[in-house]
Write a protein that binds this DNA or RNA. Structure first.
Lengths: 231, 231
DNA sequence: GATGTTTTTTCGGGTCACCTAATACACGCG
DNA sequence: CGCGTGTATTAGGTGACCCGAAAAAACATC
C-alpha cells in the first residue's frame, strides 16, 4: 500500500470520526489535490475492497479499509507521543512530523515504539491510541455545546496546527476541569474557569474544537439562581 | 528531493566511501533497478548539479551532492542508534528500518533525535555519525588484509543484513582487540583470538567486511617471535 | 587487432498519481 | 418545475520512475 493511498483512507476515517460530511470535495481540500484525483483514487480503492463508493453518492470505508485506517491512526498517535514526550516537540508541531513518519512505520516498529513509550493510552491531543485503550471512541461533545454553569473535563482537542497554536497560548491542560462562567452573545467568547480558579476567554470557534467528558449539566429547576441546560 | 533520488545519492556516496567501483551496474544491483533506470536517473541528477556523469565513464558526486548524501547518512545512522539502543533491534535489522525512516526525517527531527540520544559518535555498526564526530572518515583496513601475529581493534562492520546475521553468531563486539592466530590456505578462514582469549574462526569473505583500527603489524625481521608497529 | 562478453546507453513503452477542461449530475430557489 | 450554482465524473494529458529489447561502447582475450 502506497503512502498516498494510506492518506486517503486516513482522511476518510477522520472525517467519519469527526462527524463531518464525507464528500469528494472535503477529501480534495484536506489532501490538497483536485477533485478528479479523488474520484480516480476512490475508484482504485473501491477496486481493492478498502472503500465503498457509489458515484455522486456515498463514500465510506469497508471493514478492511477501516482496519487499515485504524492502524495508520495508531502509528500516527504513537509517533506523536514520542515527539511530544521524548523530543519535546510543541503540541502544534507533532502532527506534521507524525504524518510523514507513520508511513515509514511497519508493525514491528510500531510495537517496539509503543513498548518503549509504555503503551500510552492517549496522544498529546487527547485522542485514544487504538489498541492501547479499552474504550473504543472519543467523546464528541465540544465545549461549544455547553452553557453557563455547566462543567466538564477537557479531554481532547482537534489536531490542527492553527488551532493548537492558539490553544497553547490559553495555557490550558488536557484533563483540566472547566466550568463555563459566561457566554457572550453574537458568537462571542466563552468565559471559563479552571479548577485552580484561573479565568480564560475562549473563542466560539476554538470551543468547537475542544472535546469534553464527564459533563455536569446545570439544572435550572433544581436551583433558582441561574439559567439553562440540557441533557 | 524525492526519496528515490536520495537513495541514488546515498548509494554513490557509500560505494565511494567503501572504495568500491562506482559503476552503473553496481548502483543498479544495490538499488534493485535496471541499468536503464540508473542511466536515466544519473542524467536527471547531473542536470540538478548533484552528480557528475560522463557517458561510459565517470560517475561521482558533486560538492552539493556530497552534502546531501552526508546528511542522509547522518539521519540514517542516528535512527540506527535509536533502533538498536532504545528499541532493542538486532544489529542485523536496524539497517532496513533506518533506510525508510531517513527519508521521513527533516533537519529538526534529526537534531532533536540526536540530542535525545546524547549525540552519539558512532552507529551500531561502528560507522561515524557525520556532524557528531571530529574525525572525518572511518578506517578502511579490513581484517582480511592482516596476517598471523598482527593485532588490531574491531572498529566497524559493513551494514549488510546477510553478513550481520553471520556476525552476530560470532559473538564478537565492536571494540574487541583481535589477534590473528592463523590463516588457513586457499581462502580458508582466519583464526583470531579476542582479548579474553576466546578463539573465533572467521571466513575470508566476512573478514573483508570487518574494518580494523590501531593495527599492530607483526615484523618478522626485527624480532623472531612477535613484535612491530605501524601508524 | 579481430572477436566474444560485459557494460552502458538509447528507444519505446508502462504505471502511478497528479493536473485542466469539459461534461454530467444534484440540489436549492424562485 | 426549470434553472443556476456547486459538486462529481469523464476525457485527455504530464512528469517521475520504472521496464525489456536492442544498439553502442568498452573490455578481455586470444
Amino acid at each position: 500500500m502506497s503512502p498516498n493511498k494510506e492518506n486517503y483512507l486516513k482522511t476518510i476515517f477522520e472525517l467519519q470520526h469527526d462527524h463531518q460530511k464525507i464528500s469528494n470535495k472535503n477529501i480534495a481540500d484536506i489532501l490538497n489535490v483536485s477533485a478528479p484525483s479523488v474520484t480516480e483514487m476512490l475508484t482504485a480503492l473501491t477496486k481493492e475492497g478498502l472503500v465503498f463508493h457509489t458515484p455522486y453518492n456515498e463514500i465510506s470505508l469497508t471493514d478492511a479499509g477501516l482496519v487499515r485506517a485504524r492502524e495508520l491512526v495508531r502509528k500516527h498517535r504513537i509517533w506523536e507521543v514520542f515527539l511530544a514526550d521524548r523530543l519535546h516537540y510543541a503540541m502544534a508541531d507533532v502532527h506534521q512530523a507524525a504524518d510523514i513518519l507513520e508511513h515509514a512505520t511497519d508493525d514491528k516498529l510500531a510495537d517496539r515504539l509503543n513498548e518503549f513509550l509504555g503503551r500510552p493510552k492517549r496522544c498529546p491531543h487527547g485522542g485514544i491510541i487504538p489498541g492501547n485503550s479499552d474504550i473504543e471512541d472519543d467523546s464528541d461533545i465540544t465545549l461549544a455545546t455547553l452553557v453557563p454553569d455547566d462543567s466538564a473535563t477537557l479531554q481532547r482537542v482537534i489536531d490542527n496546527h492553527e488551532f493548537l497554536t492558539y490553544f497553547e497560548d490559553l495555557q490550558l491542560r488536557l484533563g483540566d476541569r472547566l466550568t463555563v462562567m459566561k457566554k457572550e452573545p453574537f458568537g462571542g467568547p466563552f468565559i471559563v474557569q479552571t479548577g485552580d480558579r484561573v479565568t480564560v476567554s475562549i473563542s466560539e470557534a476554538a470551543a468547537g474544537f475542544m472535546f469534553m467528558t464527564d459533563v455536569h449539566y446545570h439544572h435550572p429547576e433544581t436551583d433558582g439562581a441561574e439559567k439553562g441546560a440540557n441533557g
